[in-house]
């Protein structure tokens, strides 16, 4: 059984936002203006030490969102992907509180400033509907996992900074890179 993980190789991330628009492109049926399931965060912007990292839901093994959700809308697939059921979600935002990565997003256009249903990265694995159904496409976007494909953001990454897939494969790739770079500065920044 695979355990799906993302890893962003910060030595390679150039903040080109390819992952962000790749996600928009693939999941546009479920997204709206203002919702970005993936973002690129840059630290030390414009000064020595500038580094960027692409961030979305990290599909935690012990997911805080899942632990705190009062409506119990989260569930984990057999591949270790954390998904949620938008029909059950009450839009309280507690998951947003709990998440260390700021992954949960809320639509901004609803009346009275209501949050609406939470939206987040699905690892391109659709959601709590039948695979490739209209309902799934509309609520959650693409389901590439069901087609044997990996998330679009990582697939289209310009410099192969963003890796996605089974944790053991991802870490093999990364280990090899770190080893071949061969310096104590091989990792961050």
């Amino acid at each position: 059984m695979a355990t799906m993980k993302f890893l962003c190789d910060t030595k390679r991330c150039i903040e080109c936002n390819g992952c962000v628009t790749a996600c928009k492109n693939e999941n546009d049926s479920a997204l709206e203006w203002g919702i970005q399931r993936r973002r690129v965060v840059t630290i030390n912007d414009g000064v020595p030490g500038e580094a960027s990292i692409s961030v979305a839901c990290m599909h935690c093994s012990d997911a805080p969102c899942m632990a705190v959700c009062p409506a119990d809308c989260f569930y984990k697939t057999e591949d270790g992907i954390v998904l949620h059921d938008k029909d059950t979600c009450i839009g309280c935002g507690y998951c947003f509180y709990a998440c260390p990565f700021g992954a949960p997003q809320f639509p901004q256009k609803s009346v009275f400033g209501g949050r609406g249903k939470m939206d987040k990265c699905t690892f391109c694995a659709g959601g709590a509907e039948e695979n490739h159904s209209e309902a799934e496409r509309k609520k959650y976007g693409a389901n590439r996992i069901a087609e044997g494909k990996l998330p679009m953001c990582a697939e289209l990454c310009a410099t192969k900074a963003l890796l996605a897939g089974d944790a053991s494969v991802v870490s093999d790739i990364y280990r090899e890179r770190v080893a071949s770079r061969g310096s104590n500065k091989a990792i961050w920044g």
Partner: peptide, 9 residues
């Protein structure tokens, strides 16, 4: 397979 923001959209 790689693309920037423009290529991916």
């Amino acid at each position: 397979g790689g693309h920037c923001a423009k290529g991916a959209s």
